[in-house]
Simulated scan of single mutants.
Amino acid sequence: MKQLPEEYYTKLEELQAVDFVIVELTLYLDTHPDDYEAIQQYNNFVKERKHLKKEFEKQFGALTNFGYSYSHYPWEWKEAPWPWQV
């Protein structure tokens, strides 16, 4: 398997942490739909996740396929490891 720099793991961990917060806020908002502060937090974390994803993919390649991520040239989706393999 291809050797990856430490920064790859650091940035991937940041994304995973933000994803965790988004999932937790989603679950909370399912039962507290009128919590304005929680909705603001959710929207801020979604914005942060988009930024982190864009930066990660610019440096290391696509995180997802099926139209959710752009590809560098040449087509790189076949390159391992995929995010779920590390």
Rank of each mutant, 00 (worst) to 15 (best):
F66L: 04
Q85I: 06
I39Y: 01
G61K: 04
H51E: 09
K53G: 02
S69G: 03
A38Y: 02
E6F: 12
I22E: 08
T64K: 12
Y70M: 07
K53T: 09
T26M: 05
L15W: 03
E24V: 01
K54I: 03
P83T: 01
K53L: 01
T26A: 02
K58P: 02
K2F: 01
D30W: 07
V18F: 03
E24P: 05
Y28E: 08
E55M: 06
K11R: 06
S69R: 14
L12Y: 12
V23Y: 00
E79H: 04
S71C: 13
H72E: 06
N43A: 08
K50R: 07
F45Q: 09
E6Q: 14
Q85E: 15
F56Y: 01
D35E: 14
D35I: 06
Q41M: 12
E79D: 09
E7F: 07
T10W: 00
E55G: 06
L15S: 02
E55T: 03
P33F: 01
E76C: 02
V46L: 08
D34I: 11
P81L: 11
I22K: 07
E57P: 02
H51W: 08
E13L: 05
Y9A: 00
D34G: 01
K50Q: 03
Y36R: 02
Y28Q: 02
W82R: 05
P33S: 01
E37W: 07
D19Q: 14
A38W: 03
K50E: 10
P81Y: 08
P74K: 06
F20D: 12
V21S: 04
P33L: 09
L27S: 08
G61M: 00
K78E: 10
K2M: 11
T10D: 00
L4D: 06
I22P: 08
Q85S: 05
E6R: 09
Q85W: 09
F60E: 02
L27E: 13
G61T: 09
E48K: 13
